[in-house]
Amino acid sequence: MSVTVQVLIPTPLRRFTGGQAKVEATGATLSEVLDSLDAQHPGFSERVREDDGQIRRFVNVFVNGTNARDLAGADTALKSGDEVGIIPAMAGGAE
């Protein structure tokens, strides 16, 4: 049975989802969910992952409010009903 999760889409990435702030996606891991999102919304995944599949340093992905970096990153296991939230960093510096 497939795992279905809700994904919260941040404002800067809503141009990939037709303006939707929340979409459904399937996948037993975060990586599979991002694959599924990319199939539905081409170009989405590269905004979130590096070429090696890991989550970009300056993008944060949360699973039920916990940063995936504190879990298993892109390999984090998911169960139906989980909520995935994606937030591009707000960061910079004087250098």
Binding site: N67, I87, M90, E95
Partner: peptide
């Protein structure tokens, strides 16, 4: 002192 990154939480 040369960077900022807003708390993502």
């Amino acid at each position: 002192t040369e960077l900022y990154e807003i708390d993502p939480q």
